[in-house]
Computed example of a mutant assay.
Amino acid sequence: MLNVFDVVKLTEIDHKEIDSNQVVVTDGNGKPNAVLTELLNDVVGNMRIFINMDEIYSVNDLMKALADHTPLPDDVLDEYEKVLREPIFNINFVPKRGQVELVVGE
C-alpha cells in the first residue's frame, strides 16, 4: 500500500513537483482533514526549500535529510514522519484546481 510519502515523491503536475498548496488530505467522503493537510503542506514546503528529492528514496532518508539540513526540533520531525507514513486509500486529481487529494483513514 502506498503512503503519503510515496505519492508526494512520485506525483508531478505539469511536469513539476507538487508544491505545498497542491496537496490536500481528505477522508473517504472527501471531507478535508485540516490538521493533516496543514502538516503535510509544511512538510512539502520544507522539502522544496531544503532537500533535493532526487536523492531521497524513503521516509527515513527524508527525515535524516530534514534533521541534517533544517533547524526543526525532533517533535516536529516526529509529526512530519507520522503524516508521511499515513497509508493512502485513494488519490483524487482535481485538474481545475491543480490539486491532488490524498484519501486517508477509510
Rank of each mutant, 00 (worst) to 15 (best):
L10D: 15
L66I: 07
M47G: 05
I18R: 05
D54T: 08
D74T: 15
M47K: 01
N41Y: 02
S58P: 10
L39M: 06
S58E: 15
V25F: 06
T37I: 00
S58C: 13
S20E: 15
P73A: 11
N41R: 10
S20R: 14
Q22E: 08
T37L: 02
D19I: 14
P73C: 12
V59C: 09
L72E: 13
V35Q: 07
V43I: 08
M53F: 07
D68C: 08
K9Y: 10
F50K: 09
D27R: 00
V23G: 04
A65D: 12
N33R: 01
N41V: 01
D78V: 13
V25N: 04
I56H: 03
L36T: 02
V59A: 12
V76D: 00
N21M: 10
L66Q: 06
I51G: 07
V8F: 05
N52T: 05
L62F: 03
F50E: 12
V35G: 04
I49T: 13
T70V: 14
I56E: 09
P71V: 14
N52K: 06
D14N: 05
I13T: 03
V25T: 01
L77A: 01
D78L: 10
V43G: 06
V25E: 04
A34L: 08
N33I: 01
T11W: 08
Y57C: 13
M47D: 07
H15Y: 06
M47W: 06
A67I: 12
N52L: 01
V23M: 01
H15M: 09
F50R: 09
D14R: 02
N60C: 12
N52M: 00
N46P: 03
K9N: 14
N60H: 13
S58F: 09
